[in-house]
């Protein structure tokens, strides 16, 4: 967990970036190097995007010395945060930035995948748009390749553009060893041990899609990336020692029997 030092406040203006990244709610951000911030080339185009650009930049780089009232100060503060976010999106796809985000990823600073079958795989922050003020930040799981909403409301309001649409994919191109093994492990809805037909039919269809993909990849001699033993195209994906009987449609609950209809033999709920 991060430390949310409560004594840090905007009083510590001389270390604005320190304060910013250690503030509660800003756990997803890494610290942008001073060198990067002071190279104007990296900030190209941001002067039109950010109000009070020069003051905001001064604040972020700890050279702010404007004498102004609190309202003005507040506006500049807000602009500084916006500027930091926009530069952050560019910084995290640089070699230095990727390395810093990698460290945070390894510590699960961005949280863990809520999907049970992902077994707490660490997440990466991402945007679904590169333009600011469009979409809030989401979290990407490289194991299930899906995106999730941050569970804390303090993260739900962060602009996704501060991370961008590419960073979380670039990081796996730069560090291919980080690509997690994929798994076919999944949840299968059941009623008293029997699969539910509607869900089972969809799952069968999805399994054929997966097998088709594996065949395509194999033909092109590309690694499929699945766990050992899961790499084979299973002809009976429906597996199961058990009967393939399925329940169709709605059920009429029988009060007398519902309580005791527990299957005699238990298998894991996951197949």
């Amino acid at each position: 967990m991060d430390d949310f030092g409560s004594e840090s406040d905007s009083d510590y203006a001389s270390y604005w970036r320190d304060w910013f990244i250690s503030s509660r709610g800003n756990e997803y951000f890494c610290e942008i190097d001073e060198d990067y911030l002071t190279d104007r080339f990296n900030l190209t185009g941001l002067n039109t995007e950010v109000q009070y650009y020069q003051h905001a930049l001064d604040l972020v780089t700890d050279v702010f010395d404007l004498d102004c009232d609190d309202d003005m100060r507040e506006m500049i503060e807000k602009s500084a945060r916006h500027l930091y976010g926009l530069v952050h999106a560019r910084y995290i796809v640089t070699t230095r930035g990727l390395a810093k985000m990698l460290e945070k990823y390894k510590k699960s600073d961005f949280g863990k995948c809520p999907r049970v079958m992902c077994h707490s795989h660490p997440l990466l922050p991402m945007g679904t748009s590169d333009l600011p003020n469009m979409k809030a930040v989401k979290l990407y799981c490289a194991r299930c390749e899906d995106i999730y909403n941050p569970k804390s409301s303090r993260h739900a309001g962060i602009d996704g553009a501060y991370f961008g649409t590419s960073f979380h994919n670039i990081i796996f191109q730069v560090y291919p060893a980080l690509i997690p093994t994929k798994s076919t492990e999944r949840y299968i809805p059941r009623v008293y041990g029997f699969k539910v037909h509607a869900a089972a039919a969809l799952i069968r269809w999805q399994n054929t899609q997966r097998d088709d993909m594996r065949r395509r990849l194999r033909k092109m001699e590309v690694e499929t990336g699945f766990k050992d033993g899961e790499d084979d195209i299973e002809e009976d994906d429906d597996n199961d020692i058990e009967e393939d009987e399925e329940i169709v449609g709605a059920v009429e609950l029988n009060v007398a029997t519902a309580g005791v209809l527990v299957p005699a033999v238990e298998r894991g709920g996951v197949a």
Partner: peptide, 28 residues
Amino acid sequence: IYEPKIYGFKVSEIARSGPRMQWLRNKP
């Protein structure tokens, strides 16, 4: 289904880091 992209271009299935799990979120 989430489509991975880099600078607006889809990450191809042929890439080592390409999508492998889309079947899990697919439906005809």
